[in-house]
Design a protein around this nucleic acid. Sequence first.
RNA 1: UCCCCUGUAGCUCAGUCGGUAGAGCAGUUGGCUGUUAACCAAUUGGUCGUAGGUUCGAGUCCUACCGGGGGAGCCA
Length: 461
Amino acid sequence: MERTRIIQVLKSETHGHGVLIKGWVRTRRDSRDVIFLEVNDGSCLDNIQVIIGEEMMKRPDLAQVSTGASVAVRGTLVESPAKGQKYEIRAGEVEVYGLADPESYPLQKKKHSFEFLREISHLRPRTNTFGAVFRIRNAMAMAIHSFFQEKGFLYVHTPIITASDCEGAGEMFNVTMLDLEKMKITGGKADFAEDFFGKKTSLTVSGQLEGELLALSLGDIYTFGPTFRAENSNTSRHLSEFWMVEPEMAFAVLDDDIRLAEEFIKRIFSLCLEKCGDDMAFFDSRIQPGIIKNLESIIRQDFEVVTYTEAVGILEKSGSAFEFPVGWGLDLQSEHERYLTENHFERPVFVIDYPREIKAFYMKLNDDEKTVRAMDLLVPGVGEIIGGSEREDRYDVLLRRMKDSGLDPDEYWWYLDSRRYGSAPHAGFGLGFERAIQYVTGMQNIRDVIPFPRTPRNAAF
RNA sequence: UCCCCUGUAGCUCAGUCGGUAGAGCAGUUGGCUGUUAACCAAUUGGUCGUAGGUUCGAGUCCUACCGGGGGAGCCA
């Protein structure tokens, strides 16, 4: 007999037939004539109740089965005579794969704090919350792929090891085979010519520059992969290793970028609601009440578009006492972003045309020479979720902007070549995958939406 | 990196004015029971984050360091 996933068993239209399930025991309750096991196999939030009758109760291996043990149960799917569940399995045969010593097994039936569960990241996927989070993570990854694939975007792979000294997005991790221990002892200095690649290399902070090259060859592309930032940020919204989605469109301007971003957000949110109804109901009742309604309203609403200059005007006229100053040329702080999206517009809003001084060198300069064709999507609850721009496609302007930003154009000869030969207008954006998951699930800490988080001083598991 | 809070049993926490360690849960044992946050009774379990200091005496006060949380900056 073949194993059936518990999600399928619980959805059965009929009963009375034989089933084989395999999973991990969530709880065990003993009665005089029967043992009740709640078994979960990760396919869904719900457990299946297994009934072990008198004939097997005395078996020594079954006597030791407790929370955390893994079992296979072959039996008959029957309607449950008691309240609490529609079906249960009357066990005919139970095989114990692995026991879990109750004296040391850290997961209890009660609720644990997320801080504690983070210390046992190797076992936390066995809890309701983390099972649900990782099923949503899967659904969202698939939603991203299906959205872009349906639109004809090519999924491209950009390098993880890069020789670009600075991609303009924070501190980078070095990649080296040099013997650092030896250097420390002898007081020697790193000679990167001697290193594995013959030059200094790092882990990528973004695949965007390479993504642009592929867009300027293949049309519409997207990357979806890990990125690394060696910033010493200790917050609930930053990871040292995180996943990023970066679409890039050739022959596209800022307006196309905005339309793509709006459609993209609406689509991945609705696919999560559609594919993970039970898990979303769990987040709505246990993690963040109202999250489903909130997502549904985002899917329904038209997003607002304002220029940075207009946004600053709104903030100046708001009469709100902000902790940080508001003024043209200053970057918008979290509190300002949240005021715009939560208090003023009460919906997602794109802020465009930022001052060039506070944005990256590759963003296209507007005719006013003061602003660039950047866009940030702000959403209620978290603030910025997407950042993007139309790229500077004029060779001479890009070269000037690069020099002004203190970058060495020789290092980026390959990037500049894309503007020397067949340059074309193009635009794209970046979405932090984990932040999107945080938004959909309502999970407060980004460390709890990735299975094994990497943060400063933390790389266990 | 900065500011604030915090660290006591496996987990969640209490511990008064500085006087020598507590609860609930889980675990263990026994009882009851188609149970479902099961229930009832008994019971094991502690270098109070680490290192100094003040004091007759420190979980409690002081200093430094380490860990965790919240906020900020940077950003995605």
